[in-house]
Design a protein around this nucleic acid. Structure first.
Lengths: 334, 334
DNA sequence: TTGAAAGCGCTAACAC
DNA sequence: GTGTTAGCGCTTTCAA
């Protein structure tokens, strides 16, 4: 039998109302009464019933996160760190975190609607896509949300993002400075919004260095090691041969490195390889991977903080945050 | 203004009760009435208020998972896959998933108590420890739970675990068969329950092959690449030199490989390295890592399924599930 | 300083 | 087949 306000009321002889007020910290309760009630609550291990509070306040004090899983082997070092950031921050602000998994597709919005029905007060949207139906849906319903990532077709919403265009420019420039002119690119899925920016940065940097953009040097992957490895197979087959391979995330870069080695090339010597994210494995790869660091844990915290501010009506200092990724140069680019 | 039963009742002219029954699928509603109500609900996009249902039923239809994060760089490929399994299965069974983050320590139980107060109907406990306070607490309160991992001091609870002892025996035997006799081991933190089993398997297999167990060849890490790298520094300094290094998880094994290479040794030739988990990176490491596969996604699904069965009073076919890890032999052991 | 009463949205026992 | 009523645990007027 759970301990409720009623239990404490009976035990202390006060009414439920008074107990509620004492525990709620109202100042119209006699000090002695408050003491007694607090002690009793403590002794009984009272915890307010969340469902009742939610129903009464019509507020869940909960934020939601729907992870766009793509399949059983969903093993993204990126997400666990983002989740840690979001989770820690929401705990700090006394909010619960409801997590769902739902692959992109026709019934994706159902998962959102479900969460919106009294379960959460706001949502974090991750991995924004081009023409992202989730953004449109949330803008329509008016449910508070903050996105990790922009959406080029819908500008007017709060987000935190990393400037992939500037990032890729730094990376390409780094390679060009080392003398590379034939640089392949394993791009993230084009429907992901950040994919556009990264490829734009790649193209722009080439152009700025007088190197024509060649679509044949670009192949798309699905962010997994496996697709990075496959992409590298294609890129290494190009003639005249490339001297460098970039990937749109570290995981694909690690896959690509595996292929490069298998073909008997030395990464960082025969072929330079670069990634994006700076996951922990990047530093311990062979050779250590040159990449662009995203402060993913902090992004999680900040996204969460912005969302709770919106929910609580606290004005945001910045509605749209664009962070610049840091180029981390390691041995994989020689 | 959210759509409630009242909205539909007013729109259709029926009472709230009838609307509730029609939507609830009760058969004591006229077919024509049901049609009208269903259509109206559909048209208005009605979603039942979760808080109200929970309060009424005194059931949250939610399970909880508290992730024992250890810090900001919490980037465990293992967890995202486990989470995907749990998330997909709970969605399938129409349960919500509430996720918390809470490092082990004095106020760990507060996080559990919070979840237990009307927020969840049951909990999944991950990374069981020796004398795990979470297990004791849950046994005391009677809150349904299923653990991923055993707890040697408290036998009587439902869990899914992987047999680390048998796994490590396979691994060591594999190395001995290749001629190795001096095998170092970077163990997971001893307070983690699975650490005990893995080290026991390591010791047993050595003994079975007439090799004395030498505590000097064992060093503890914290599951990160960094600690694996540091552990290997120690192990490589031992004289007479080791010919093989095992690690209690893949992440540490990858860190160890990095050190081995840095010292100018060739992994799989000069020094064999083995891990545990079979995370995706293992296959794409250089060289690909020999390891023990845990079906982590399925473990997530199964754990979740067992928990919901308990909550719903469905008898479990097996209360304690022990899976045997599969030895995946790759180039890192030559 | 305290208590009675209403009501958040939903379900279910009990009329009719 | 349908409606009335009560109540889940909590907060918040309003009275006393």
């Amino acid at each position: 039998m759970p301990v409720t306000l009623k239990t404490i009321a009976q035990k202390t002889g006060f009414s439920i109302t008074t107990v509620s007020r004492a525990l709620g910290g109202y100042d119209d309760v006699a000090e002695s009464t408050r003491q007694l009630i607090l002690e009793t609550a403590q002794a009984l291990g009272y915890q307010p019933n969340a469902a009742a509070q939610r129903l009464k306040r019509l507020r869940a004090n909960t934020i939601g996160l729907i992870i766009p899983t793509f399949g059983p082997r969903f093993s993204d070092p990126f997400f666990s760190e983002l989740l840690a950031g979001i989770g820690n921050q929401s705990a700090e602000r006394q909010f619960d975190l409801l997590v769902g998994t739902q692959a992109p597709g026709p019934n994706e919005i159902d998962a959102y609607r479900r969460m919106e029905s009294g379960r959460v007060d706001g949502l974090i949207v991750v991995r924004t896509r081009q023409n992202d139906v989730r953004i449109y849906h949330l803008q329509e319903t008016g449910m508070p949300f903050v996105a990790f990532g922009r959406c080029d077709e819908a500008q007017d919403f709060p987000y935190v993002d990393v400037d992939g265009e500037v990032g890729m420019q730094k990376m390409v420039q780094h390679l060009v400075d080392l003398g590379h002119r034939r640089i392949g690119y394993i791009a993230p899925p084009p429907e992901l919004n950040f994919s556009q920016h990264r490829i734009a940065g790649y193209a722009t940097a080439l152009k700025m260095n007088g190197i024509p953009y060649d679509a044949a040097l670009v192949i798309y992957g699905d962010l997994t090691q496996q697709s990075g490895a496959a992409g590298a197979v294609y890129l290494l087959g190009i003639d005249p041969p490339l001297t460098a391979i970039l990937a749109g995330n570290d995981t694909m870069a690690l896959g690509a490195m595996s292929t490069v080695r298998e073909r008997g090339f030395v990464v960082g010597k025969d072929i330079a390889v670069g990634g994006f994210d700076d996951v922990p494995d990047a530093e311990y790869a062979h050779p250590p991977l040159t990449t662009l660091r995203q402060p993913i844990y902090d992004i999680g915290r900040q996204t969460c903080d912005m969302l709770i501010n919106i929910i609580q009506g606290i004005p945001l200092s910045e509605i749209q945050v664009l962070l610049e990724p840091e180029l981390i140069i390691r041995k994989s680019t020689g």
